[in-house]
Amino acid sequence: MTTRLPILRVRTDYGDDYGGVVARDGLIICFFMHRSHGEVVHAVWRALQTYRRAIPHQALGWYTDHNGDYQPLDDKGEKFIQEELRDCRWPYRSSHTLEEHCNTVGGYNFEYEGYWRDGTRFMYDEDPTCAVSFTLPTEYLVEHGPKGVHALARELARELPFSFGYVSFALVAPHGLWFAGRKTVVELRDRYLGLDIYRLGATSRHIGTQARGAYWLTFLGLPLLGRLGGFEVLQRRLRFPDVSLETLPPLEGQRVLVTLGEWPEVIDTTKQERPSPQLLALGSLLEPFLYMERSGWFSFFADDVADTRRWIRRFCP
């Protein structure tokens, strides 16, 4: 069985004169690690090398410097990323992005938000958590199949001390660039319930050890897994033919991957599609542990937090 994923391109609400594509269809592989930057950065660096070996050569061609300007990822750029990411000694935050293109959104992107949890915090950071994401174009899923994506996600997870992670069909948009086309994004959000829309920087500031939602692939680590009741409770609550549960090395019993079906769910409401029972069951299980978004994402009014919270809980009872 295969699932046809829609081709999505989002441009700015202000016309092509103000920029090109700000979001496109793809997959996101994302992990949250409730540790300080210094404790996770070497694992993140190794995971980045794993990701780069899995994608086309030179698929990541650009990085952003300290001023937020795009620079080519040449030998000088490689040295910059290695020194600034792996050897960063900033007292508060380490933030880095590698992208496929500099003038439009491509399918291959890497984002990292690292925090020194024992250092100075900004006043709006309640529980900052190191976060990393790797994106893939939908074409990668078509070429390698869901098993290829599943294998890559597991290999990335091996390196990372995550509390929560996931893989989902998504609007790929580094830096949360989709916000420039939020009128179209809201339409897509309401049509495709399985479409993930993310802002890594915003979420990492306060997610702590909570969950972000229920997804095609959901990674659960400590302490969140313990709060859910452990592997045995997951087995009991997720008894569905299309659900698989597996413990992950090297810490079997402390890290679990929940897989909901062979392909990610799109859930096109215009076709009267509904979330699967297993997706709703996982959403119900995670609901008490979902984080509370502090800002409105989709409205033209920045304080419309309730709308964002409703969307995050769309698979909860």
Rank of each mutant, 00 (worst) to 15 (best):
residue 40 V to C: 07
residue 239 R to L: 15
residue 3 T to I: 13
residue 110 F to H: 07
residue 202 A to V: 15
residue 231 F to G: 01
residue 41 V to R: 09
residue 137 P to G: 06
residue 221 G to F: 09
residue 2 T to R: 13
residue 284 S to E: 15
residue 303 D to Y: 01
residue 133 S to F: 02
residue 194 G to Y: 08
residue 143 E to S: 03
residue 254 Q to S: 14
residue 305 V to K: 06
residue 228 L to S: 02
residue 243 V to L: 10
residue 311 W to L: 07
residue 148 G to W: 05
residue 292 M to Y: 13
residue 223 P to S: 08
residue 101 H to A: 03
residue 290 L to G: 11
residue 294 R to H: 14
residue 198 Y to S: 13
residue 28 I to Q: 10
residue 109 N to E: 05
residue 16 D to P: 00
residue 155 E to T: 14
residue 131 A to P: 08
residue 282 L to H: 07
residue 253 G to M: 14
residue 219 F to N: 05
residue 306 A to H: 07
residue 112 Y to K: 06
residue 169 F to K: 13
residue 57 H to F: 00
residue 175 H to D: 10
residue 310 R to Q: 15
residue 158 R to Y: 15
residue 308 T to M: 12
residue 10 V to N: 07
residue 212 R to M: 14
residue 16 D to F: 00
residue 161 P to R: 14
residue 148 G to T: 03
residue 202 A to F: 05
residue 34 H to C: 04
residue 31 F to L: 05
residue 212 R to Q: 14
residue 53 R to M: 00
residue 293 E to N: 12
residue 201 G to S: 11
residue 95 S to Y: 13
residue 234 L to C: 13
residue 52 R to C: 03
residue 308 T to Q: 12
residue 20 G to C: 01
residue 139 E to L: 07
residue 170 A to E: 13
residue 173 A to I: 08
residue 21 V to S: 01
residue 136 L to M: 09
residue 86 R to L: 15
residue 122 F to N: 05
residue 64 T to Q: 15
residue 99 E to Q: 06
residue 311 W to T: 11
residue 314 R to N: 13
residue 200 L to T: 10
residue 27 L to V: 06
residue 216 W to P: 04
residue 226 G to Y: 01
residue 292 M to G: 10
residue 57 H to G: 00
residue 300 F to I: 01
residue 90 W to R: 08
residue 122 F to S: 06
residue 250 P to S: 11
residue 74 D to K: 09
residue 58 Q to K: 08
residue 120 T to W: 05
residue 103 N to H: 06
residue 112 Y to I: 05
residue 232 E to A: 15
residue 256 V to Y: 14
residue 58 Q to I: 00
residue 107 G to Y: 06
residue 168 S to P: 03
residue 151 A to V: 00
residue 273 E to A: 08
residue 237 R to M: 11
residue 249 P to H: 14
residue 141 L to T: 02
residue 45 W to H: 09
residue 198 Y to K: 09
residue 8 L to S: 12
residue 268 D to K: 10
residue 114 G to N: 06
residue 114 G to S: 05
residue 24 R to G: 00
residue 280 L to D: 07
residue 193 L to N: 02
residue 117 R to N: 02
residue 102 C to G: 12
residue 63 Y to S: 01
residue 239 R to W: 12
residue 268 D to N: 15
residue 70 Y to R: 03
residue 118 D to M: 00
residue 100 E to S: 06
residue 75 D to Q: 15
residue 179 F to G: 02
residue 274 R to I: 12
residue 51 Y to H: 02
residue 37 H to A: 06
residue 109 N to H: 08
residue 20 G to S: 06
residue 252 E to H: 14
